[in-house]
């Protein structure tokens, strides 16, 4: 009855096994009953597939389609597992396991075969191998060219990637120019340079805050005295952390919040849009604005730095 043990190499000695041994009997206590159970689940599966066909034919709802298909598969699957578990030889059975480590002789044979021929091929004609290797290496390098030259443009100077220019009109999502009377104090609007509505890099948040008493502009940092006429301030909407739109404005605290990773930027007077919370490492770039003779909001100049997250060699 017992199989060979302990032997990792060589053929095991055959053992005689009687097929009426307990190991070949089924595990079910009541095979007839188990047969009926399996038959019932198979029939459920069959019915499920018929139902799926019908549901598909009449274009039934997703629920009907899925439940009938699921019933079909679950019925078959349950039945087959029960069949395998209860109505097949219960075992246990075993097979012997052989070591994966080759014998010394096996190793020696392949090494000698390989090296004896290898000497002739490689060592005697080493210069052929060298040329072949050089050609392969050059091809490897050349094969990269299409990837580098054609997959996409090489990165430009990044601040040029936005479409903001000197005197660009601010327009809203519908492309309409923004007038100085459009926003109440505390209002917020997503704006773009005219001609790039919806632009992923040009997107800018326009906020109107009540300037401090006795002043017309809001000064977020020294040198930005004229950037926020009548309390209108514009900040790049691309988060300096991972590039999500900094879409939420908290009026009471004068803060912009990025919904992705919760970086919080303070856009109050003197705060320079510095991050005050969260993982963002840099302030949001501010767009200098002016109001033209007709009362429309326009950019004094493009952003003074690349917008968006940090990257290699970017000026900090």
């Amino acid at each position: 009855m017992s199989g060979p043990t302990g032997d990792t190499h060589g053929e095991p000695t055959p053992v005689t096994v009687r097929l009426d041994a307990d190991q070949f009997k089924v595990a079910a206590a009541n095979p007839r009953q188990m047969e009926r159970t399996v038959a019932a689940t198979f029939l459920l599966g069959l019915a499920g597939f018929v139902g799926f066909g019908a549901a598909y034919w009449v274009n039934a709802s997703n629920a009907w389609l899925g439940v009938s298909l699921g019933a079909g598969f679950v019925g078959l699957g349950f039945g087959m597992v029960a069949w395998g578990k209860y109505l097949m030889p219960r075992g246990p059975f075993s097979e012997s396991r052989h070591s994966m480590v080759p014998t010394k002789a096996e190793k020696a044979r392949i090494i000698s075969d390989f090296s004896s021929r290898g000497k002739v091929v490689v060592e005697r004609r080493g210069f052929l191998v060298k040329i072949l290797g050089a050609a392969g290496a050059v091809f490897g390098v050349v094969a990269m060219f299409p990837l580098i030259r054609s997959l996409g443009p090489l990165p430009k100077h990044f601040s040029e990637a936005t479409h903001w220019h000197k005197d660009s009109y601010l327009v809203n999502v519908n492309g309409e120019r923004v007038h100085k009377d459009d926003l109440e104090y505390g209002g917020v609007l997503t704006v773009f340079p005219e001609g790039d509505v919806g632009g992923a890099l040009s997107q800018t948040t326009l906020v109107r805050q009540l300037p401090p008493k006795g002043e017309v502009n809001i000064v977020t940092a020294p040198g930005r005295e004229t950037w926020s006429p009548l309390g209108y301030m514009a900040f790049s909407r691309v988060c300096t952390h991972a590039g999500c739109p900094v879409a939420l404005y908290q009026e009471l605290t004068h803060q912009l919040l990025c919904p992705c990773h919760q970086s919080l930027f303070d856009i109050g007077p003197g705060a320079a849009a510095q991050p005050v919370f969260g993982p963002a490492p840099r302030p949001l770039p501010q767009l200098p604005l002016y109001i033209d003779a007709q009362g429309y909001l326009r950019a004094q100049a493009p952003f003074d730095q690349p917008v968006g997250p940090s990257f290699w060699w970017r000026r900090d």
Binding site: L19, A21, F24, L87
Partner: peptide, 20 residues
């Protein structure tokens, strides 16, 4: 005890065996 399938000679033949 496990039956070693790879080292067994079966008596009687599996097919038609009344052992199930």
């Amino acid at each position: 005890e496990p039956v070693a399938l790879d080292a067994s000679i079966y008596l009687p033949a599996l097919v038609g065996s009344p052992s199930y």
